[in-house]
Design a protein around this nucleic acid. Sequence first.
DNA 1: CCCTGATTCGC
DNA 2: GCGAATCAGG
Length: 181
Amino acid sequence: MNWTDERVEKLTKLWAEGLSASQIATQLGGGVSRNAVIGKVHRLCLPGRVKAGGATSTPTRTAPKRPAAPAPRAPNYPARTITRTAPRADDTVALKQEMDIQPLEDKVELAVVSGTLPTSRRLTLTDLTERTCKWPVGDPMTDDFHFCGCDSMDSSPYCKYHAKLAYQPVNERRRAAATAR
DNA sequence: CCCTGATTCGC
DNA sequence: GCGAATCAGG
């Protein structure tokens, strides 16, 4: 991925807003890692972390002198673009689902924390909002296809769980390695 | 363990 | 210039 003026601009903006490097990486998409974001931030000489409250904070000094081993590299980014629209979903259904969001939230949160799949609300395309996970589930060519639709959003088109799957292969690999150990 | 930003250095 | 690997810290 190339650091176009457009992407640099977005990076600068989000960094100024106080988003974390990983969050920015998620928003930028295109397989940008948080390390890439941080590296770019430094190269751009942008000011350090800016807490929302105004305090700078998070001073982390380091004096490493690491060797640096060969990097395996592991892209593999979904980069999904689902275009299939789903029928049904009238206002009544939408309203019912709206009312179900709150009680579901805690369950989703627990699922995310425990590393299990979030509770899918099985939303169709027209039911999705800025507050629902847009991770596609199932085969788009079947009637069973739907979107996760859960409400545990984390500044990305996906919920916390799916955002990890979509944009953070490094973390996934680390988690898998830790689990296997 | 999870996460964060900072740093180094091979590419 | 880029970013993975690695660090130190919360």
